[in-house]
Design a protein around this nucleic acid. Sequence first.
DNA 1: CTAACGTGGATAATTATTATCCATGTTAGT
DNA 2: ACTAACATGGATAATAATTATCCACGTTAG
Lengths: 157, 157
Amino acid sequence: MQMKTGVEQSVYAILILNMLPDKAVLPGEAISQQLGASPTYFQKLLRKLVSADLITSVPGVKGGFKLKKKPEDIRVYDIYLAVEGQQSLYSSSGVFLGMFDVEESSCLLTNLMEEAELSWKSVLKSETVASLFEELNENYQPKVQLLHEWIKEKMVL
Amino acid sequence: MQMKTGVEQSVYAILILNMLPDKAVLPGEAISQQLGASPTYFQKLLRKLVSADLITSVPGVKGGFKLKKKPEDIRVYDIYLAVEGQQSLYSSSGVFLGMFDVEESSCLLTNLMEEAELSWKSVLKSETVASLFEELNENYQPKVQLLHEWIKEKMVL
DNA sequence: CTAACGTGGATAATTATTATCCATGTTAGT
DNA sequence: ACTAACATGGATAATAATTATCCACGTTAG
């Protein structure tokens, strides 16, 4: 039971997009390169972020991706949800239904597990891209500068 | 990202063992049969519960499994931990280290994810086998009676 | 019209999870 | 002793989830 690495990659991708100047756009391949991720699979991740309305895509020669929302309006939770999907961490396997032949779709554990998941999610809702970025700036300024320069090279428009 | 079904099965297995009279023992195959689980794989799960000191095993002809702790001392969390292992829900993939070539083992997300996981776990710690069993009795009395009779048939010693 | 980009579907590779098999050790009953 | 019923533990296979690749297609700047 591990979170997909795609969630982490997506968070950093969005953190990068957050550094883009207004109107600029960054090609998917550049981002995947910066993250050291597989380009083709990463493109799929970006699609999920587009579908979730977190980023927008621009096709064509000078195309790429950029944020659709303000960083303070993108929670880590939103990225998690976009990549992992809405299915819950726990889904009853039917053991309970089998043993007690009940009609319900819930089992003895459902309530507890839902509560646990809500609790987990609520923490992910407490941090936004803006707050993450702030933390990044505070602790890794020099590296962030390098990133900025790299972005100037790679961005288009 | 889904919890292993083994966790659910283990919870119900322990709930069954909780209904055993003192000194009695229930063979692994009987339990797996009641749960509709694969007998061989289920035996592995039971081993994990033994290793975690939640249940004890008795080898030999009249052998089987029984609880090692009192139901109020077994938290759902303990079962989760026994089956899922101690590895965390999130483990940094190294994207951060690659981008910022930092030496640390933690990344920007580590703190948040740890907090989220603790929060999730704390809910699992709030419910015990005793409290689950109480809920079971309150809502499914007739079925629990049937289970009790089945146990009388299958138990040994 | 072409080159650089995103889209979306099919499919393969990899990894995690679930399941099976088998040889071995233990114990009750004969 | 011997046997039958159980647990143990290692090796390995089957299945499912995740990650990765490929390719045909649509869009747009030059």
